[in-house]
């Protein structure tokens, strides 16, 4: 069975149709990249899959292991294994990164019928994961994302992903804001999670990321539709030619 299926998905915001029939199938173990011009609906697609309020799905479905995702609340979707690394992670004053991580981890463990993680085990896990991502361990004592630099926020998103080990990870421009070295480190973090029973949807504007996280498929999203799909060479072609020809066909 496919891991995640998006079938003919239509969604509107404030009465305006943004997604106009998107179909994507993510097999376990696969990495799909989505590229496309600004404002074409990439973040909208991620938000609709993750369950953000304010979007009206007018047609189509999203299935995780064949189960209706759209019928679930956002937190249920996350516990079922959907993870969204935000394009713009929000700052949450007063809530420490560590308290947040622990709460999220325990929510997942409880849902899986596992006991809560004990304090020592948790610290060990965070230490190991932050080290892999080249983050100072002390960062988890700070309020969640508050005052984090652009790149630090993106690393923190990937830290959360590596701790929560989702089934489907959607990375919405996780590469933007990262310096050249950080891009490499973060990509390695993502690659370390690649596994036969997990799938990735990687949204990016830059072919460079796909040198590190090598995708199986590349899709072009324009005007709320997937207008082209191909292998990783499609990204190279886009880099050279731009989106002009897709915008014409989509219009």
């Amino acid at each position: 069975m496919s891991l995640l299926e998006v079938k003919n998905l239509h969604a509107s915001v404030a009465g305006k149709e943004i997604l106009k029939g998107i179909t994507l199938t993510l097999e376990p173990g696969s990495v799909h990249a989505i590229m496309g011009p600004n404002g074409t609906g990439k973040s909208t697609l991620s938000n609709v899959i993750a369950g953000r309020e304010g979007y009206e799905v007018t047609k189509g479905e999203v299935l995780l292991d064949g189960k209706d995702v759209l019928a679930m609340e956002a937190d249920e979707r996350a516990r079922a294994g959907i993870f969204l690394a935000f394009q713009y992670p929000v700052e949450i004053p007063g809530v420490t990164t560590s308290a947040f991580l622990k709460t999220a981890l325990n929510a997942k463990r409880r849902a899986a019928g596992q006991p809560e993680i004990d304090a020592m085990e948790f610290l060990k896990l965070v230490k190991a994961k932050t080290a892999v991502l080249g983050m100072p361990y002390d960062m988890i004592k700070r309020a969640l994302n508050v005052g984090f630099s652009g790149g630090e926020k993106k690393r923190a998103e990937v830290l959360q992903m590596t701790m929560l080990e989702p089934r489907v990870a959607i990375l919405d421009e996780t590469d933007s804001g990262l310096d050249i070295d950080a891009l490499k480190v973060v990509s390695e973090g993502v690659n370390s999670l690649r596994s036969p029973d997990r799938a990735f949807l990687v949204i990016t504007h830059y072919q460079r990321l796909l040198d590190y996280i090598v995708p199986d498929y590349v899709h072009v999203l324009a005007n709320g539709r997937v207008v082209a799909s191909g292998g990783k060479e499609l990204a190279l072609q886009l880099e050279a030619e731009g989106y002009a020809k897709y915008l014409n066909t989509a219009a």
């Binding site: 953000r52 937190d75 996350a78 993870f83 969204l84 929000v90 007063g94 809530v95 947040f100």
Partner: peptide
């Protein structure tokens, strides 16, 4: 804020508690 916590699997009641405690902190 609520959506951010929900997207990490945290149920609404726990999320509100975390945010309120954070606010008072």
């Amino acid at each position: 804020h609520m959506f951010y916590l929900a997207a990490r699997g945290i149920d609404p009641d726990t999320a509100r508690r975390l945010l309120i405690e954070g606010f008072l902190a």
